[in-house]
Design a protein around this nucleic acid. Sequence first.
DNA 1: ATCGGCTCGCGCAA
DNA 2: TGCGCGAAGCCGAT
Length: 506
Amino acid sequence: MERLGIAGPLSRFQLEGRVKGVQSSRLRVLNDAPVKFDGKFVLYWMVASRRTRFNFGLEHAIDRARALDKPLVVLEALRIDYPWASERFHRFVIDGMADNAERFRKADIQYYPYVEPRPEAGKGLLAELGRHACSIVTDDFPSFMIPRMLEAAARQAVVQLEAVDSNGLMPLAAADRAFPTAHSFRRFLQRELREQLIEFPKANPLARLQLPSLKKLPASILERWPTASDSLLSGTDEVLRELPINRSVAATDVVGGAEAARKTLRRFIERIDDYAEERNRLDAEGTSGLSPYLHFGQLSSHEICRKLLDREDWAIDQLGEGTSGSREGWWGLSRSAEAFLDQLVTWRELGYNMCRQRTDYDRFESLPDWAIRTLQEHAGDTREHVYSLEEFEEAATHDELWNAAQRQLRRDGTIHNYLRMLWGKKILHWSENPLHALETMIELNNKYALDGRNPNSYSGIFWVLGRYDRPWGPERPIFGKVRYMTSNNTARKLKVAGYLERYGKD
DNA sequence: ATCGGCTCGCGCAA
DNA sequence: TGCGCGAAGCCGAT
């Protein structure tokens, strides 16, 4: 498609009008297999963007179906045995399947939610569906198991498999290197983001669809891989209870799915003005709470951005010309709105960039040289406290504030914005060595955090060890030149009493 | 309450 | 080659 530079001010109305196809920079063809024109349907294999709105992948699959004049089938699958799978994540994803089922039902699209009942049971489903399909469209995603899963699918698919990048405002392919600091990435964004702001996906790609409808999926497939039942999706039956998954990580009080996501978004937008002031307070509801929905793709950063910009009556001519990378002033918005967009766009997409650019994003070696050097120099320092993974996991340290943060992680699947940093810094402080600390952080975060396994979780964990940061003096034991934090100082800065009360015990 | 020093590397200006 | 500056800090001095 044609990509236009923007010469002058452009109204939102004009922005809405420019919707054609998905940009080529968001599209990767993963294999050499052909499109089968006599297939029964186009298959959208939903793996990372688990939503029906603001979704380039779904939009592209619909375009494909329309061009071929075929029905669309949407497969959303949930494996039983992926690393760290538990009742917590299953509940969240299944909540989302219920929302998607409702939306696709109204649009008369064959939606095929599949919840694997036991390990290996889902094997062959994609291949079998692929044999009936004209082509397959799926979601691109740069971390955890999805890159490997897509490679495997590409090897076995007998029709064309395309992956669409619906991860963020910038296509992952727009950058050809990893950025060492938020500042340098911000500079990149300030040069390149302008033209992406006219490339938003459709708010509702299901509107006014006129695709041929497919009444039934092949019976041979449904017999072997039955669709998740309505009662499973609604969360009222025993099926989830009987699934052989880790039940020690229980569901949280956070309801999953695109509907809950949009409700959370609406409520956050109402209090956006307080964001800059309150996001680091322990005794306020300052943060957005959107991270889990973003992680599972139940909410799009485009939709968040659109809602925020609309509410601020923003137009593209408010964008600053400067590309100095400074944190405030570029969007031309209020302090709170800019602070939030810096999180949503700069920091979020910085992490995605790292995972796309470096296959070792989850390894110690991916840290900057100065951090590796200084941590290694201090790896043998004497430690006053050394805890095992189990002691950390059980919140059994000598530090009550730390223990409370760990209990919040276990109970709620998240740690307060500010305490998260302290949580990691103390794991570094109280582990046998920095490698152990890294393993502990990854294990606990991926196991308990709703937004674990996401590029941004890795940014947070590696920030503790120096990624995206700079050296700080004075040089200290264990930390070396890596930024140091203490519970005492945190307690001086924040009102911790209520938090300690709330998470003081299990 | 606020300030400087601690320390390194990037990217731009010269 | 020099210079400014950077996710959230800490500590001690003013």
